[in-house]
Design a binder for these strands. Structure first.
Lengths: 109, 109
DNA sequence: TCTATATTCAACACATCAGTTGATCAAGGG
DNA sequence: CCCTTGATCAACTGATGTGTTGAATATAGA
């Protein structure tokens, strides 16, 4: 899975906001419009509309057309790109820890 | 794995910067000091020092003491908390997609 | 066509962030 | 006890982000 640096910037920045994370959670249960996404929050729909644009620019969601509505859809592959990036370094670190543990145990004996 | 909302804010925001991501990559290969982390970048050590503080506040790294040096260490569990959060919603979305595919296939027949 | 609904654009205020320079603190080595 | 090295603090600047209000656009429906 290849993502350019800018996409990582935008994706992580997109998730660094509780409102957008709540939208992600909501969208995991199915598509939703601006109005539906705005409902739980005490902010204007314009603000929600821009949150959606941020998520879309990050590639985390796509939008379709349904009459006047512009439903949002989560893109699981984009989420997977993030976990891949993180896991690469987490797994390397864990491997290193295990190697060090093994070395310490050898020293003891 | 339980993380408060603020930790998610700080963690994702911490990763939304290419300099800090490069530091994470470097630290996955072993501990490093401020000076070592600063080396690849054309910015001052003060700036690097603050990037490190951001990573530490996010819980992504810890620091130890070695004489004058304050080596940084990656915390794999903190990375794992992020992938868990993301995967919850990615997997839910993928399950939903599969259910919809199955339904469509049923309609056809 | 006229009106209501869904969404977006534009311009502004305010806060936060990443970087700088200069001063300061802490630990080791002569 | 100096002096050097590693690291941090403080104050400032410019850029970016999140929210607001008010106007504009687009589609649906009577």
């Amino acid at each position: 899975m290849m993502v350019d640096d800018g996409q990582l910037d935008r994706s992580f920045a997109a998730l660094a906001d509780p409102v957008r994370r709540a939208m992600i959670a909501r969208l995991s249960r199915g598509p939703a419009t601006v109005n539906e996404l705005a409902d739980p929050f005490p902010i204007t729909k314009q603000a929600v509309s821009r949150h959606i644009q941020v998520l879309e620019a990050a590639g985390l969601i796509t939008r379709t057309r349904d009459g006047q509505r512009r439903p949002c859809h989560l893109v699981p592959a984009a989420l997977e790109a993030l976990t891949s990036w993180i896991d690469e370094y987490r797994l390397e670190t864990e491997r290193r820890f295990r190697r060090m543990e093994a070395l310490l145990k050898e020293q003891e004996s």
